[in-house]
Nucleic acid binder design. Sequence first.
DNA 1: TGACACTGTGTACATTCGTACAGTAAATTT
DNA 2: AAATTTACTGTACGAATGTACACAGTGTCA
Lengths: 194, 194
Amino acid sequence: MGQDKDFEYLGKIQDYFAEHKTLPTFSHVAQLLGFKSKNAVTSFVARLKLQGFIDYAPDKRLKPGRRFFERIIAESTVQAGFATPTYGDSLDTIGIDDYLIEKPSQTILITVRGDSMKDAGIFDGDVVIVEKRAFANVGDIVVAILNKEFTLKTLGKEDGQFVLIPANRDFPVIRPNGDFEIFGVVVGQFRKYG
Amino acid sequence: MGQDKDFEYLGKIQDYFAEHKTLPTFSHVAQLLGFKSKNAVTSFVARLKLQGFIDYAPDKRLKPGRRFFERIIAESTVQAGFATPTYGDSLDTIGIDDYLIEKPSQTILITVRGDSMKDAGIFDGDVVIVEKRAFANVGDIVVAILNKEFTLKTLGKEDGQFVLIPANRDFPVIRPNGDFEIFGVVVGQFRKYG
DNA sequence: TGACACTGTGTACATTCGTACAGTAAATTT
DNA sequence: AAATTTACTGTACGAATGTACACAGTGTCA
């Protein structure tokens, strides 16, 4: 199938975008993919456009289509392993931003310092995605304002009183005497290695 | 200062990018900002370029500069707290993808099943970002192919032999007798709550 | 085998690009 | 008040853009 080759080409264009933050011109695409004619690009682009990977800007130049940033998620199971996925497979495919952030205007990113949420898989240096709102459920990981300080803890309840529980045995459960405020709820987390 | 007006203009251009995933041409910028001449754009762009917000693509068109996507990540410290960032909604959709994925075409996402990397902060259901390559350093978290099965472990060395170390005391260190292959290296991880 | 879609080549072309240069009007400096 | 700088207008222009059309090679399918 030409499909496979198109996806190989798409990969190169995605790499170009990752590097330059803009899509190449027709001529550059031709150069990038080894075509000797710009017209080869025209039809190639038309194919990708049908599938939503590439689109046209108001001025006919190329711009990323709605699926351009999508990524394939493969399933790994400890025992069974997984196969290398391709676009053809009907696996979930997502853009990470869209997946993690639902309400951009109410969402902020916070780099976490300290190990108090270590056992919840939130390490020093991780970034948490926080949706700003005043209400949370027991069990949610929340950003709370306590004594005018922000802190990241799991929201719990003891004897009808809300408590803030760290996910690390070395830290104490906080039982706020006065009141505290919920700044937001952690809806996601990410980490970069290296 | 003209500075303020420039930033106001920059905001409009960032909005344009958020919508179109590409920067406008000089003519469109003029239109967007209410200029009647393209040349007004030339000098305006020159100013933003000096500050690193906008750059030129290989073909002289505009592309986002290194500071264009500056995302507002607040720092949280356990004791000191953090301040609410000012530009709440300038998180663009490309931000996280771009941060986590450097080589899109060689990168795949894998949903992790099992608790074998729990102590490394990789939980059941988390998604890891894997850059496909055959070589890794000791200490890297790798996806290895062992007995035709894929597995996620930390790469270690014992007596000059590579070993695969799970980040969970309940799992054994794997000392491959035969050879194993490195499928890729984990360069990032993310998780969604709720 | 022949018809026919694909994929890419090569040439031609109107449109649009970003830039150069000359000029105006207002703000800033001296 | 004169000189200079800044911010923008307006026209002109070579270069590069994306598109159109004719054509060649390859594989597919009846």
